[in-house]
Design a binder for these strands. Structure first.
Length: 867
RNA sequence: GCCGGGGUGAUGGAACUGGUAGACGUGCCGGACUCAAAAUCCGGUGCCAGAGAUGGCGUGAGGGUUCGAGUCCCUCCCCCGGCACCA
């Protein structure tokens, strides 16, 4: 056996062994439970980053652990291969996104393989390949048939210089990232998926997911946002070209119908017909509507921006009081959300309150809470309280509580035919059209005579040409005659193909079911899918807690309703790993755009005020420090693990990553512990080599005493803790248990009894480490003669017999402060323990001659004397 | 702004249902080996006072419940994730 730890050799050998024995090929095995372990597939951005290493090591640890515990496992891998970074790379390097993507996949696959992951590579997927995305298109057509997919207008960010649609990420402070031009809102047609048709089930089925973290379920429930409210109308006779606008009714929705008597104005979106009407004759309104075109479409921006508005001069009628109510245009009212208009009750809504104060609009109290005094000077929390309030200044509704008021008011509105109760969802339908090249083509043909015609199934897939090079000025498909020109499937006349592609969330909404299938060319999924699904353990970043997971749940339910699969929920258990964070550095370009720099190109310093400043190593020019954030391709703050793997080996990288922090916790990147992880593996190897030289010893482990007995107890105690932590995925303390074991073994004596315990302990330690550092465990298991394959060995369990002790040490406290400890026999009763405690010198000193008021004994742990 | 999570030594983190705060690492200090360094090994290391025994303080800040609080409750501060076209 080699005396020095040589990760290069043992890792290559172990990996060869797994690939030759097809150790991780997923097959149905009778009599064994299945375990489908899935890590979120990576976007092929070029190189793995530490977040990937973390994610895939967690998945591999769980896969190998389950394999050793008798499961038949499936752990697949693939590529979320469509997306924006490929187009950005094309703009920068003039390389087609397809070539860039395939090159990245080849490189990253090598990296993944060098980590020694137990992946069934025969099930690899790349979403940019026609044999995969064909089924995106096919299912989209089924959704069109069922009315789940439909067309309507959508609001997008428009860069007027590049003449292109921008992603939210490409808008920096209201300007295009490349051009620095002021971004405009534009309304264009696009396809939507009716996820709201499934809102009720998506909400209710969260209860069917006990294996999901509560925090993720809470976020999803809040996102779906079921609310019970009232939709009602303000009648008016505002006419445009002689006809009443919207039949003379201004509809709004509110969850606070109980405050309806406090309405002092209504606010409509800039795109609302009433605003458009007012703009025709009122310059101020027209100017404001124009200004609103530059308001961000992002919710975070809308929520934090200054609320502004302008009076249209128009009036509508309050449906209950008959009073005339002014109509304002507000920049915070969104046309695409609800009715595009809201009733404003400044007295009981914080946003309306601020708006009314700003424009000196009346504030009318209509809710009272006992013992509280209302004042229009300043907003107070209780103004918005619907639990404890009753109506006031509200005529016949005075004295009613929230629910009574809503019920009565809804009934009155209904009687007037001006409204009714309505359940509303915060969740909006899913807009999937992207005005981009590098995505799955939407299978639609536009015909001058027949309109938008679905591509017939037998013409699928609509294949995306792979040789385009986007230049930042719109979708290059517009210039591709061979893609664009086709014949109408209905009438046979010349027609044009749709050039929009699908949101990449479509690709990732069902890949897990394709992995699990038999990869048929004539079916999206098959019977094998139902065998492996649902995923037993899904692992991925917490940043996907809402969108990706919600879309996947929705897509699964649509597939179920099409009888393609038989499960309601795709992911039985979810582990949301925390982000790996690193520093972010950027700098404004001359055009007003933004450029990022990798942390290793930058030197960080602190100024006198303790603020972090930074400059480029290359030329010393100053760059802006943007704080710390998730490792991402676009911000260039990822750390490539390759250098680590090359220098220390995959086992060190895996061990370090698992040891650094528990999986769910965010992790600020620092490589200072890598050496320590490597040192541990070197010590393990050296200890193994030494033990191989000394040789084994037979000794009855049931008849140990002294050192050997204590050593064995220590090992089994650490094993008990490790198994407990393994089950709750706290791998950092599993590693520390393994380190404790090795520390204990290194200190142990060389007599026969000790060596027999070491023999047992090493076999435990190697099996325990095998999921985390599989290569070294594989090599030592064979070298020390425990067997051919540690993966085939049984998972170790602590033995009760090894854990018993004759004497216990109890902590002594006086008034909750630790003052010493006592040793008692394991069989001592409460009275004996109390007596021993009170007799203790330190306790006597604290009691100072007095008698204890009370003595609390926590069995096996401590005694607290209350003085 | 809203929703979700987090804050513990110099540092990554541990502490099971409220029961010895700082496990296991890193770093640092001292020692051994060495001509020397690296590597390796041994010992120490929360802060303050003290020669020491020991005492006091200590889990973002402030308050509360309890024999006992990092853990439970209230108020506040800071950081991270998501907010629908980054993936």
């Amino acid at each position: 056996m080699q005396q020095n730890y040589s990760p290069k050799d043992i890792e290559a050998t172990a990996q060869q062994h797994w690939s030759q024995t097809e150790a991780f090929r997923a097959v149905k095995e009778s009599g064994k439970p299945k375990y489908y372990c899935l890590s979120m597939f990576p976007y092929p951005s070029g190189k793995l980053h530490m977040g990937h290493v973390r994610n895939y090591t967690i998945g591999d640890v769980l896969t190998r652990w389950h394999k050793m515990r008798g499961y038949s496992v499936l752990q697949p891998m693939g590529w979320d291969a469509f997306g924006l970074p490929a187009e950005n790379a094309a703009i920068a390097n003039k390389v087609p996104p397809a070539k860039w993507t395939y090159d990245n996949i080849a490189y990253m696959k090598k990296q993944l393989q060098s980590l020694g992951l137990g992946i069934d590579w025969s099930r690899e997927i790349a979403t940019c390949k026609p044999d995969y995305y064909k089924w995106n298109q096919w299912l989209f057509l089924r959704m069109l048939e069922k009315g789940i997919a439909y067309k309507k207008t959508q609001v997008v960010n428009w860069d007027p210089v590049d003449q292109t649609v921008l992603a939210n990420e490409q808008v920096i402070d209201g300007r295009g990232w490349r051009t620095g031009a002021l971004v405009e809102k534009r309304e264009i047609p696009g396809y939507y998926l009716g996820i709201t048709q499934y809102a009720e089930e998506l909400l209710a089925d969260l209860d069917k997911l006990p294996g999901w973290p509560d925090r993720v379920k809470a976020m999803q429930a809040n996102w779906i946002g079921k609310s019970f409210g009232v939709r009602f109308a303000f009648p008016h006779d505002i006419k445009d070209n002689g006809a009443a606008i919207n039949d003379g009714k201004l509809w709004v929705y509110t969850t606070r119908a109980d405050t309806i008597m406090g309405v002092t104005f209504v606010a409509v979106a800039a795109e609302h017909p009433l605003a458009a009407h007012a703009a025709k004759s009122n310059k101020d309104v027209a100017a404001f509507v124009e200004k609103c075109k530059h308001v961000s479409v992002m919710e975070a921006d809308i929520a934090t921006m200054e609320k502004e508005g302008v009076d249209t001069g128009l009036k509508v009628t309050h449906p209950l009081t008959g009073e005339q109510v002014p109509v304002w245009v507000g920049n915070y009212v969104l046309m695409g959300y609800g009715e595009g208009a809201v009733m404003a009750v400044p007295a009981h809504d914080e946003r309306d309150f601020g708006f009314a104060k700003k424009y000196s609009l009346p504030i009318k109290q209509s809710i009272r809470v006992a013992d509280k005094t209302f004042s229009t000077d300043k907003w107070l929390e209780w103004y918005g309280d619907k639990e404890n309030g009753v109506c006031v200044n509200s005529g016949k509704y005075d004295g009613l509580n929230y629910q009574q008021a809503v019920d009565t008011i809804a009934a009155d509105l209904k009687a007037k035919n001006l409204g009714d109760k309505q359940v509303q969802w915060r969740l909006r339908d899913w807009g999937i059209s992207r005005q981009r090249y590098w995505g799955c083509p939407i299978p639609i043909i536009h015909c001058d005579s027949c309109g938008s015609v679905p591509v017939p199934d037998e013409q699928l897939p609509v294949v995306l040409p792979e040789d385009c090079v986007p230049d930042g000025s719109g979708n290059p498909l517009h210039k591709r005659a061979d893609f664009l020109n086709c014949t109408c499937p209905k009438c046979g006349k010349p027609a044009r193909r749709e050039t929009d592609t699908m949101d990449t969330f479509v690709d990732s909404s069902w890949y897990y079911s394709r992995y699990a299938s038999g990869f048929k060319s004539d079916a999206m999924v098959d019977e094998e899918t139902n065998h492996w699904m649902p995923v037993d353990q899904y692992i991925g970043g917490i940043e996907h807690a809402i969108l990706h997971l919600l879309y996947s749940r929705f897509w699964s339910k649509v597939m179920r309703d099409l009888k393609l699969v038989n499960y309601d929920e795709p992911f039985a258990n979810l582990l949301t790993q925390g982000m790996v964070l690193n520093h972010i550095f950027s700098h404004r370009t001359d055009k007003g755009g933004i450029q990022y720099f990798a942390p290793n190109e930058v030197e960080m310093m602190k100024d006198e005020g303790g603020r972090i400043t930074a400059k480029l190593v290359s030329d010393g020019s100053a760059v802006d420090y943007q704080g710390i954030g998730t490792m991402s391709k676009s911000k260039l703050n990822g750390v490539d693990p390759q250098a680590l793997i090359d220098e220390y080996g995959a086992d060190t990288a895996r061990l370090f990553m698992m040891f650094a922090a528990p999986p769910e916790q965010t992790l600020e990147w620092a490589d200072s512990g890598v050496e320590g992880a490597h040192r541990f593996l070197k010590r393990l190897w050296a200890f193994g080599a030494e033990f191989a030289n000394i040789g084994k010893e037979t000794h009855d482990l049931g008849a140990l005493s002294g050192d050997a007995k204590a050593l064995r107890r220590e090992i089994h105690l650490a094993l008990r803790q490790a198994n407990y932590d393994m089950a709750r995925f706290q791998f950092n303390t599993v590693v520390s248990a393994a380190m404790k074991m090795l520390n204990a073994l290194e200190k142990s004596g060389k007599e026969a009894a000790n060596r027999a315990v070491v023999n047992e302990a090493l076999s435990i330690l190697l099996r325990l480490l095998s999921p985390i550092t599989p290569h070294i465990a594989h090599a030592l298991w064979r070298e020390l003669g425990y067997g051919d394959d540690v993966l085939a060995a049984q998972w170790p369990e602590p033995l009760e017999a090894a854990l018993v002790q004759d004497e216990l040490e109890l902590v002594l406290q006086v008034n909750g402060k630790m003052r010493g400890s006592i040793k008692v026999s394991a069989s001592a009763d409460k009275a004996a323990i109390e007596a021993a405690a009170i007799a203790h010198e330190a306790v006597q000193k604290q009691l100072n001659g007095g008698a204890p008021k009370k003595v609390i004994v926590v069995p096996g742990r401590l005694v607290n004397v209350v003085a």
